[in-house]
C-alpha cells in the first residue's frame, strides 16, 4: 500500500515540469510553464510558500538543488536559453549567477556531487553541454562547453557519483576525483563524458535506443564497484547500462512500455528506479536477486477525484 503524506497545491498557472525536494527533503522547489519557480517549506506535513522566483522569460524546464555545504543554492534552466543560479541570503532568494551562453532552450541542469566542488552541468537544444565550476578563491564561475554533444539537441544530463579512485600509495594527500557526466539527446544516443585536463572528452557513445533519448540518470553508487545508468526514450524503452570499470558498458532493456517514457529517477541509495511516461503511470522497478528488473508493487496513476 501507498500513502499520500501530503499534497502541495503549487498555485502555478500552467504545467509543472519539475518538482525537486532539497537535500534533506524539507523544502520543495517547482518550476513551470508560467515562467516561475516556487519554493515551499514542507516540514511537518504543512506547506508554506517561501518564494516565488521570477527571472526567466520562458517555461522553466528543470531545477536542481545545490549541496547544503555550499549554502542554499538552486539552479534553473529555461526555454529563454538561460541558466540561473539562485541563492538564499538572509532568508531571501535572489539571482546569484546567470549563464546565457546557449543558443537555444536549456533543457536540463544538475549540480554535481559535492566531492566535485560546486559545479553545474547544463544540456541545451543547441546540442551543447556546459559545465560551470565555481572557484572559491577568486569568487568566479568558469564555464567549459562541450560543442556538438548531441546533434539536434541534448535533453538530459546527469553526473557520475564521486568514486574513490584506485588508492595511490605514497600519496595520501587530497584525493582527486575524475568528473564524469552522462547525457542523452535527439541523436538517439547516450554519451559519457570525462574531464581530461582542462577539456571534456567523449568517453563512450552508447548506441541502442532507436529514437530520441528523453532522460538519463546515473545511479548513486551502491559500493559494489558497479555503475548503473538508466536511460529512457521516445522508443518506449528503458535501458539499464552497467559497467564495472566505467570504461565498457553493457546494455539491458529493462522494459518496453506502452507509450513514450519521459523520466527516470533513482532512489537515494540507487536500488529502486521510478519511471514515468505517456502511459499516465509512475512505476517503481527493482532488480531482483537473480538480476532481472521487476516492477515492484504500487504503480501510481492519475485519476480525477471521485
Amino acid at each position: 500500500m501507498v500513502t499520500v503524506l501530503n499534497s502541495i497545491d503549487t498555485g502555478h498557472e500552467d504545467m509543472i515540469h519539475d518538482a525537486e525536494m532539497d537535500f534533506y527533503g524539507l523544502r520543495l522547489a517547482t518550476c513551470s510553464s508560467d515562467n516561475s519557480i516556487k519554493i515551499y517549506d514542507i516540514k511537518n506535513g504543512a506547506h508554506t510558500l517561501l518564494e516565488d522566483l521570477k527571472g526567466h522569460f520562458g517555461p522553466v524546464w528543470q531545477i536542481s538543488w545545490g549541496h547544503p555545504k555550499f549554502g542554499n543554492l538552486l539552479a534553473s534552466c529555461s526555454y529563454d536559453r538561460k541558466v540561473i543560479i539562485w541563492k538564499e541570503q538572509q532568508g531571501k532568494w535572489s539571482k546569484y549567477y546567470e549563464y546565457a551562453n546557449h543558443d537555444s532552450s536549456v533543457n536540463s541542469v544538475q549540480f554535481a556531487p559535492p566531492e566535485f566542488g560546486l559545479a553545474l552541468a547544463c544540456g541545451s537544444s543547441d546540442g551543447c553541454i556546459s559545465i560551470l565550476t565555481y572557484h572559491e578563491e577568486s569568487n568566479t564561475w568558469e564555464a567549459k562547453k562541450i560543442q556538438n554533444a548531441h546533434a539536434i539537441g541534448c535533453n538530459s544530463v546527469s553526473w557520475c557519483p564521486a568514486v574513490t579512485p584506485e588508492p595511490d600509495f605514497g600519496n595520501d594527500e587530497e584525493t582527486t576525483f575524475v568528473r564524469r557526466l552522462v547525457s542523452g539527446g535527439c541523436d538517439n544516443l547516450v554519451k559519457i563524458w570525462q574531464e581530461d585536463g582542462d577539456k571534456w572528452v567523449e568517453a563512450n557513445k552508447l548506441e541502442v535506443h532507436s529514437d530520441w533519448v528523453r532522460d538519463v540518470s546515473w545511479a548513486p553508487s551502491s559500493g559494489l564497484n558497479r555503475h548503473y545508468i538508466a536511460s529512457c526514450s521516445q522508443d518506449r524503452r528503458v535501458i539499464i547500462w552497467t559497467s564495472e570499470d566505467i570504461k565498457t558498458w553493457n546494455s539491458n532493456v529493462m522494459h518496453t512500455f506502452d507509450d513514450v517514457v519521459w523520466n527516470v529517477s533513482w532512489s537515494l541509495n540507487g536500488n529502486i528506479l521510478a519511471v514515468s511516461g505517456g502511459d499516465n503511470k509512475v512505476s517503481l522497478w527493482k532488480q531482483s536477486m537473480e538480476g532481472t528488473w521487476m516492477c515492484i508493487s504500487d504503480v501510481l496513476k492519475g485519476q480525477s477525484a471521485m
Binding site: 504545467m15 503511470k281 509512475v282 501510481l300 492519475g302 485519476q303 480525477s304
Partner: peptide, 19 residues
Amino acid sequence: CKTFVIPNELCRRAGLAGV
C-alpha cells in the same frame, strides 16, 4: 503490480511524473 490512484484531474488529463 498494485495500482495506486492519485486523485487529481490534471494528472489524469495530462499524465504524471515521479521524482
